[in-house]
Simulated scan of single mutants.
Amino acid sequence: MAKKKRQFKLKRTWKRWRRQLKRFFLYRGHLRWFNTGLVLFGTVIIVLTVTGVGQKILTPPTKPAPQQTTAQARRTFIRRVAPYAQSLQQRTKVLASLQIAQAILESDWGTSTLSKTYHNYFGVKAGSNEPGVVLSTQEFVDDHYETVNARFRTYPNWQASFTAHAQLFVNGVDWNPNKYADVLAATNYHDGAIALQKDGYATDPAYTAKIIAIIEKYRLDRYDQPT
């Protein structure tokens, strides 16, 4: 309503100025100059509009699409991966909360190059006969972090990364198929996080505390299926 009132007021003002100018030119005997000026003014407006200049001047700038806040992006990430983690828990007994928390920690909420480009959400290293890519990474060695180059596994999609991660706990490693037996036996996230450290999944001494903190902050245990 207010916009229509402003438009009506502008039109009325323009008509009043036009009448006054017309009287002035008519009084001076130069009415044809007045008509010529109107034609030229209209031509300029048309040219500016066709070339796009007029649109930039007359059209208000469009607002950019709103970006997701950090909190929104994190909720979106959890909602995206949680159902698949739950389905994997039913098949493998790996708690969904553990998988989601590890994916958050290892991939920085799916924003790392390894996860965005190569769909590896858990920092899994590539075997000699597996598809992989060499990237620099931070590893905890001799009580401190070091930047090293390592060959990481690549996957066709993030679901394949989650599946391979769960199967690692189920199948263990070549030299010890039962390496992650404590992780599979855990019935709650607290015991599961301790088992990750106990079974040698990570070298970071604070890994258990980080996983528990993520699960509790975002209430990821609500995605765990009853055993």
Rank of each mutant, 00 (worst) to 15 (best):
V39L: 15
R79P: 00
I45C: 04
L40R: 04
T111K: 01
K63W: 06
W33N: 14
L38R: 12
V94F: 09
I104K: 00
N35F: 15
V39Y: 12
Q90V: 12
L38A: 06
A103P: 06
Q68S: 13
T49K: 02
T49A: 08
H30S: 12
S115C: 05
A101V: 07
I46V: 13
Q72L: 10
W109A: 03
L88S: 06
T36K: 12
L40N: 02
T62H: 12
P60M: 10
T43W: 10
S115N: 03
Q99M: 15
F34R: 05
A73K: 11
P60H: 10
I78N: 01
A82K: 01
V39G: 09
L98I: 15
R80T: 15
T117R: 15
T36Q: 13
T70I: 15
Q55L: 11
N35M: 12
A82I: 04
Y27C: 06
V50A: 09
T92I: 09
K93Y: 11
I46K: 03
P66K: 13
I45Y: 01
I46L: 09
V47G: 02
T51P: 00
L114V: 06
R91M: 06
Q89G: 10
R75S: 10
Q90D: 04
A96M: 07
P61V: 14
L114I: 07
P61I: 11
Q67V: 12
D108I: 00
Q55N: 15
T62E: 15
L95M: 13
A82F: 06
R79F: 00
K116C: 01
T111M: 02
Y118S: 05
L88V: 08
T49P: 00
L114G: 03
S87L: 08
P64H: 07
K116W: 02
R28L: 14
P83M: 07
I104H: 00
T117V: 13
I46R: 02
G52A: 03
I57W: 12
V53F: 12
